[in-house]
Design a protein around this nucleic acid. Structure first.
Lengths: 141, 141
DNA sequence: ATCCTAACTTGGACTTTGTCTAAGTCAACA
DNA sequence: TGTTGACTTAGACAAAGTCCAAGTTAGGAT
């Protein structure tokens, strides 16, 4: 993520303090923040940043392929900066915790031509569900 | 779906006209309606049905395992009555069309123990993405 | 170094999707 | 046929996201 800002500048982005802060917030592994969480963390460094800017910036990062949108539960979308390494997600049904995981094989290979209905496939997103160790021990929440 | 109402009565459901209409709307294959679409179609048969009842009924059907929630895009959830036959979804990135598809193999098998982080897995949802034939021919929408 | 301007940001109104509640209605059993 | 608790309703509320007009600013031009 460290060279993200350089890459974006190369694509003609204007490098504003707001965009810098959003990019910093998204830095790291296993980061799956909602837009509101990104806004809250960004506001710690730049108190006047607006929600609209956070949404705009996240949308642009997604369009550029730098960040992935993850819709695990039909509630708020989450934003995953780990877009450069293919991975899938493992979600706890109890507490909602999310882990990046790496199944083996190409998920697309499992879909036979007869099940593709003429679509040109571009990818597959897999959400594994289960209970994390903490929720297995204390299932009643 | 035809015997759904009988099954539900067996579970102690009161069989109201509203529930009957919602179940009828959800009947069929490749049905992936949003709650609002279910409400609109139900209202054609029962004009005074309320949104709250549609949400309640859909939530109950999901809790009973008769209907699946599908979150393909972070927008409105969709409701899939085909819960009795395991399947996955193929979504067109252009127009949003959804098909039920059947990949071969068990999706869970692709996730090695070292990538399970102590979770007890319960299932996996796969969303294949691509362009449907119509959107491949006319990609600018 | 300063100016200019298109690009960016802002606050707030608005939309969409979904939840909750209090009061009224009715399916199913006795 | 009466009773009752489960069900439904309208509308207020909440959460998540979009849109817009007005103000600000990064970065190239001078």
């Amino acid at each position: 993520m460290s060279d993200l800002l350089e890459r974006l500048r190369g694509r003609g982005w204007r490098l504003t303090s707001q965009r810098r802060v959003v990019a910093e917030v998204l830095d790291g592994e296993h980061v799956h923040l909602t837009a509101d969480e990104v806004h809250a963390r960004a506001a710690r460094h730049l108190p006047e940043i607006s929600r609209a800017t956070v949404y705009n910036t996240l949308g642009e990062l997604v369009a550029l392929g730098e960040v992935l949108e993850v819709a695990t539960d039909g509630r708020a979308k989450r934003y995953d900066p780990n877009a450069r390494h293919a991975h899938q997600h493992l979600v706890c049904s109890g507490c909602g915790a999310i882990r990046d995981v790496h199944p083996h094989g190409d998920p697309l290979a499992a879909l036979p031509a007869t099940e593709r209905f003429g679509f040109v496939l571009s990818g597959a997103a897999i959400t594994y569900r289960g209970l994390c160790p903490a929720c297995t021990d204390a299932p009643a929440r």
